[in-house]
Design a protein around this nucleic acid. Structure first.
Lengths: 142, 142
DNA sequence: TTTTGTGCAAAGATTTTGCATCCCC
DNA sequence: GGGGATGCAAAATCTTTGCACAAAA
């Protein structure tokens, strides 16, 4: 689905399909969620010459095309992941950094309420919760 | 409450109360939520010589002391805000960058569910939702 | 006086930009 | 062939670190 839709989305805007763009999209799909640097490393295993600049520019493009989205997980760098069906909410452990996921539909009631009462339309595929995972949360009940 | 508790928390650890630390905490309390740079600007209005390095070091210290926490709002810089009573969830508009707030208690049912079913304890005072605010969301219903 | 804290400058890390060249269409 | 895309290098941010001096206790 994604490779062909990339070509179509690009063509529809007069943009070009390049090897780099295909590789970068594929890397994001494969990695699940990854920082620009992780994408770069993955892409370089296949095509050594690809520059980090191209990673940044292409991730931004793919996001504009709606193929990927990014989230900020606690620390510095943003992480990118495929947009679409497999959306998920990240559960990030403050202690150990583990990243779990949950179904965004659990947010639907709240999202609907916010849309109704405040006019704010939450992007429920772009949410992270911080806290303590099961392992790290034991002991210091609070 | 906070000024005196700062002194106590510092003394309890053998650390020192300085003018900079008081000013930086006060700035965070006043600003609501602010990036290190915004804190720096606020502090400099009172004490011109304070260095940005001290802002970073002190914000980290205040966070360890439990007086402030930080959140990552879409773009780059983290924003710091006072920990404790006045917790709030940020509603960040992807378009215009406006930051609104909502009561974290609205998250309570979901947080309880996650704790029960997955053992993940969400820090509900440390949540940001991204999306479109009322003004920016009009027109492109999707 | 002693030890922690701060300012300054420089180093790091990450991300962006300008420009010449490359190559998709 | 033409205009968008890439690589390279340099710039721009943002954050951290080392060290000498200042200041709290």
């Amino acid at each position: 689905m994604s490779e062909s839709s990339l070509a179509e989305l690009l063509r529809a805007r007069g943009l070009r399909l390049t090897a780099q763009r295909q590789l970068i999209l594929q890397a994001v799909l494969d990695l699940g969620h990854a920082t620009p640097e992780q994408v770069h490393n993955a892409v370089r295993e296949v095509a050594a010459g690809v520059n980090i600049t191209t990673i940044y520019r292409t991730l931004e493009l793919l996001e504009r095309l709606g193929l990927v989205t990014h989230t900020h997980l606690s620390h510095g760098s943003p992480t990118y992941h495929a947009a679409g069906e497999d959306q998920h909410v990240h559960l990030v452990c403050r202690e150990c950094g583990a990243i779990d996921e949950m179904d965004p539909e659990l947010l639907r009631p709240l999202a609907d309420q916010l849309a109704r009462e405040r006019g704010f339309r939450v992007d429920i595929g772009h949410v992270s919760f911080f806290g303590l995972c099961e392992r790290c949360g034991n002991g210091d009940q609070k």
